[in-house]
Simulated scan of single mutants.
Amino acid sequence: MITQAVEDARRWLAEWGIVETGDGWVDAEVPGRPLTANEVAHSWAGEVFTDERLDVAEQVRLAFGMLDLLDDYWVTCEIRFADRGSDGPLPADVLWDGYRRRLEAARDAEAVTYSLWVDWFEDRDTAATAFAEVLGNDIDQVVEEGQDAVIRRAGRVLACSGPVPWPVKQKTYDTAVRLPALHVPLFKGLLAGYHDVYGDLEPTAALALLARLHLPADTPHLPELRSVLVAGHRHHYRSPHAWDDAVRASTR
């Protein structure tokens, strides 16, 4: 459980003299200088993967516990460095289970979704595997069972999936549209697919999907996105004036 992972991380840090106080964190060797969570993450998250007392799976679980404890994006960077480094890859089942659990948790998951977006999804070498592991592999089950936690995970993944190559995510999108609770996240994914520097979509297919979404009529950027897709534009940076033209047309 995530709570246990937090306690394991807290205990591990304390072994090295890093303890939490009312004002933040302190290092036993420099007790008069408070540390931020970000400073602790930069100094210690990578060290988890050098602790020879732990096997690799235990290191990964401990790193995720540190992420829960510190809520700092840098911890996810160290996890990725360990996976992609010379001693990687990390055990895939433990790695992706760690991501899925945190995407399903009720607590804020910004560090996790940001990690997926800018590190795993924007990298063409890892986008397909990462997307499949956090959603694509079980999207049918998500839609059929409709459980709150997995819907939460699906929505978070879809909203940050703009950079995932269209052929990789299209089937998942086409399945997710069957569940109305995922329509807003799907729209966010389509919008990011058009605007993100690494975004990817196919205009005709994206337009057909957009037509199936039940969204409030006043959804921000809905008419503009529809307009650029109708015109066949696949990316903001390929047609930099198209969006401005669509905005002007929607305000007339």
Rank of each mutant, 00 (worst) to 15 (best):
residue 231 A to Q: 12
residue 148 D to H: 14
residue 118 V to I: 13
residue 33 R to D: 11
residue 169 K to H: 04
residue 100 R to H: 06
residue 177 V to K: 01
residue 15 E to M: 09
residue 10 R to F: 09
residue 14 A to V: 09
residue 148 D to R: 13
residue 25 W to A: 05
residue 117 W to M: 08
residue 137 N to F: 14
residue 93 D to W: 08
residue 145 E to H: 13
residue 47 E to I: 09
residue 69 L to D: 01
residue 175 T to E: 13
residue 6 V to R: 14
residue 141 Q to V: 15
residue 216 P to E: 08
residue 246 A to H: 00
residue 62 L to T: 02
residue 10 R to P: 02
residue 90 L to N: 00
residue 47 E to M: 11
residue 141 Q to P: 02
residue 40 V to F: 15
residue 49 F to D: 05
residue 11 R to S: 12
residue 80 R to T: 15
residue 134 V to K: 01
residue 57 A to V: 11
residue 232 G to A: 06
residue 150 V to T: 15
residue 116 L to W: 00
residue 150 V to S: 13
residue 226 R to D: 11
residue 189 G to N: 03
residue 232 G to E: 06
residue 177 V to A: 06
residue 138 D to I: 13
residue 176 A to Y: 00
residue 78 E to F: 13
residue 110 E to P: 00
residue 245 D to R: 14
residue 166 W to K: 03
residue 23 D to G: 05
residue 220 P to W: 06
residue 182 L to K: 05
residue 36 T to Q: 04
residue 230 V to C: 11
residue 149 A to D: 10
residue 145 E to S: 10
residue 238 R to Y: 12
residue 44 W to E: 05
residue 90 L to E: 02
residue 27 D to A: 10
residue 250 S to E: 02
residue 214 H to K: 11
residue 218 D to E: 12
residue 228 V to M: 10
residue 144 E to A: 14
residue 72 D to E: 11
residue 128 A to W: 01
residue 53 R to L: 05
residue 194 Y to S: 01
residue 106 A to R: 14
residue 193 G to C: 01
residue 237 Y to W: 15
residue 29 E to W: 14
residue 114 Y to P: 09
residue 155 G to Q: 01
residue 76 T to K: 07
residue 116 L to F: 02
residue 146 G to N: 03
residue 142 V to C: 08
residue 220 P to R: 05
residue 70 L to W: 08
residue 133 E to N: 06
residue 209 L to C: 02
residue 222 L to D: 03
residue 31 P to H: 04
residue 86 S to Q: 12
residue 170 Q to S: 10
residue 140 D to N: 09
residue 218 D to M: 11
residue 159 A to Y: 01
residue 7 E to G: 07
residue 46 G to L: 10
residue 18 I to P: 00
residue 227 S to I: 03
residue 73 Y to N: 14
residue 166 W to Y: 10
residue 138 D to P: 00
residue 158 L to M: 02
residue 105 A to Q: 12
residue 238 R to Q: 15
residue 178 R to H: 10
residue 10 R to E: 14
residue 245 D to G: 08
residue 193 G to L: 04
residue 222 L to T: 01
residue 235 H to Q: 12
residue 241 H to S: 14
residue 48 V to I: 08
residue 1 M to S: 13
residue 199 G to S: 05
residue 18 I to W: 02
residue 206 A to T: 03
residue 47 E to T: 09
residue 196 D to Y: 05
residue 72 D to S: 12
residue 91 P to M: 07
residue 4 Q to W: 10
residue 65 G to K: 03
residue 120 W to C: 00
residue 151 I to R: 09
residue 108 D to R: 13
residue 200 D to A: 06
residue 185 P to C: 04
residue 55 D to R: 00
